[in-house]
Simulated scan of single mutants.
Amino acid sequence: MPKPTFHNIARLAGVGTATVERVLNGRGGVRRELAEKVIAAARTLDYPRRLPDVHRGIFRIDVILVRPETTFFSRLSQAFGRIAATLDVSVAVHRTFMDEHDPAAIAERIANPETRRAGLILAVPDHPLIRSALAKLEKEGLPVLQIVTRAEGVRADYVGIDNYAAGRTAGLLLSRMQPSKGTIVALCHSQIYQVHRDRIRGFSDYLAERPRDGLAFAAVLFGHDDAGHSADWLFEALRLWPDLVGLYNAGGANASLSAVLRKQTRGRDIFFVGHELTERSAAALREGVMSVVLDQAPEAQARRAIDLMLARLGLVGEAISNDPIRFVTITSENL
Results as ranks from 00 to 15, higher is better:
Ala151Tyr: 00
Val89Asn: 15
Glu276Asp: 14
Ile130Glu: 14
Ala166Leu: 12
Asp162Ala: 03
Arg75Tyr: 14
Ser291Cys: 01
Val63Gln: 06
Leu257Trp: 06
Thr71Ser: 15
Asn254Pro: 04
Met1His: 08
Leu65Cys: 08
Pro4Gln: 12
Leu129Gly: 09
Ile330Ala: 08
Val195Arg: 10
Pro113Asp: 02
Tyr158Pro: 10
Arg56Tyr: 04
Val154Asp: 12
Glu333Val: 02
Ala253Tyr: 07
Ile200Ser: 14
Gly182Trp: 05
Val289Glu: 08
Glu236Met: 07
Arg199Lys: 13
Ala319Asp: 09
Asp213Val: 03
Phe97Gln: 10
Ala105Asn: 12
Glu100Ile: 03
Leu234Cys: 12
Asn334Glu: 12
Val20Gly: 10
Leu137Ile: 04
Ala237Asp: 07
Trp241Tyr: 15
Ser132Lys: 15
Asp213Ser: 07
Ser74Met: 10
Glu152Ile: 07
Val89Gly: 14
Thr278Glu: 08
Ser204Gln: 15
Pro2Gln: 09
Ile200Phe: 09
Ala166Met: 10
Ile64Glu: 12
Val15Met: 07
Arg56Cys: 04
Ala118Trp: 01
Asp126Ser: 14
Leu207Asn: 04
Leu308Lys: 02
Ala118Thr: 02
Thr44Gln: 12
Gly202Ile: 05
Arg60Ser: 01
Tyr164Ala: 05
Glu152Lys: 11
Val144Tyr: 08
Gly160Ser: 06
Asp323Phe: 00
Ile330Lys: 14
Ile9Lys: 02
Asp88Ile: 01
Leu308Cys: 08
Leu310Trp: 02
Phe72Leu: 14
Pro298Tyr: 03
Val293Gly: 10
Asn163Ala: 02
Gly202Pro: 06
Val23Thr: 05
Thr183Ile: 11
Phe222Asn: 08
His55Asn: 06
Gly274Leu: 04
Arg11Cys: 08
Glu100Phe: 09
Ile106Phe: 00
Leu129Trp: 04
Asp126Lys: 05
His196Arg: 01
Leu247Gln: 02
Thr19Met: 09
Thr86Gly: 05
Leu261Thr: 00
Asp295Arg: 07
Leu45Asn: 10
Thr331Cys: 11
Gly57Lys: 01
Asp88Tyr: 01
Gly228Asn: 11
Pro143Gly: 07
Phe222Ile: 00
Arg32Tyr: 08
Val293His: 07
Trp233Gly: 03
Thr265Lys: 11
Val316Lys: 14
Glu114Gly: 12
Leu285Phe: 07
Glu276Val: 08
Ala165Arg: 15
Leu174Met: 15
Asp232Glu: 15
Leu247Ile: 09
